[in-house]
């Protein structure tokens, strides 16, 4: 098991926000955490990434307790957080520089992945010169260089237009399987969750709990074929019912 969260509880000013969260992400698996806004997804996200320490519970990576420790799990937000004053290659190499590599080798290592991430020729540009989709890809590469272990994605595609989003989803699925990145995707977009994940956790209530789990069987179908299949619709209606929306 790559990432494991055990009985995580967190409250804010005396009110419990999330309670007894248990979840697992296996090697190379894409798991979504689906729930309405305000259910505590971001609170959980901050705990998993080590920014916050939970009131109780544990976060394990490869069985090692990393609760409250940053630097092991990488993450990416809806805002791509690319630094406007750094070139694309320096943005992407930043996690390596932070870990103590020198600038030149960090750049070289970053450049090795530019082709795979469809960023060839953009290294000396500034982020403001990239399109929305390109920025997101650059941010994802930076996230990948930050940690190969587990990646948390917090609504990474929600600021993109529908068409760019679809293209990016397709590309993203390919790359994530090529790189075998274990991923926990936080989203409130049911279609996105169904399109991308192997498994979906549903989070509802106040305080937020994980109330259901759906494993997606594609039966060999992928992309459009899966999205227009009766199975897809069945999953979707089940999730809508579970979320009561």
């Amino acid at each position: 098991m790559k990432l494991q969260a055990c009985r995580i509880c967190q409250s804010y000013r005396g009110t419990p926000v999330i309670q007894d969260i248990d979840l697992e992400v296996d090697e190379g698996e894409v798991v979504s955490l689906l729930g309405p806004s305000g259910v505590g997804k971001t609170t959980l996200f901050n705990i998993l990434s080590g920014i916050d320490t939970p009131d109780s519970g544990q976060v394990l990576v490869d069985g090692e307790d990393i609760t409250g420790r940053a630097g092991r799990i990488s993450y990416m937000l809806q805002k791509d957080l690319l630094f406007e004053y750094k070139t694309v290659v320096d943005n992407i190499a930043l996690p390596l520089v932070i870990k103590g590599e020198n600038k030149v080798t960090a750049r070289e290592k970053a450049l090795e992945h530019f082709e795979q991430f469809g960023l060839l020729g953009t290294d000396k540009l500034f982020p403001s010169q990239l399109s929305g989709g390109m920025r997101q890809r650059a941010a994802l590469l930076r996230t990948y260089l930050f940690s190969h272990d587990v990646t948390l994605l917090d609504e990474p595609f929600s600021s993109l237009d529908a068409i760019t989003k679809r293209q990016l989803h397709k590309w993203y699925l390919e790359i994530i399987h090529a790189l075998q990145m274990a991923t926990l995707l936080i989203t409130h977009d049911i279609d996105e969750a169904l399109r991308l994940s192997d498994r979906i956790y549903l989070m509802t209530g106040k305080p937020g709990r994980i109330t259901d789990q759906v494993t997606i069987e594609r039966n060999g179908k992928s992309g459009e074929a899966f999205e227009t299949s009766p199975e897809f619709l069945a999953y979707k209606s089940r999730i809508i019912k579970a979320l009561q929306c």
Partner: peptide, 28 residues
């Protein structure tokens, strides 16, 4: 940006690295 500082924290950056890579450049 607070989120940017969080991100660098999560990458394991220390105070000086946050100064060097975020605070100083945005203050320019």
């Amino acid at each position: 940006d607070r989120d940017a500082i969080h991100l660098l924290h999560a990458m394991g950056a220390n105070r000086w690295q946050i100064m060097r890579h975020i605070k100083m450049p945005v203050a320019m």
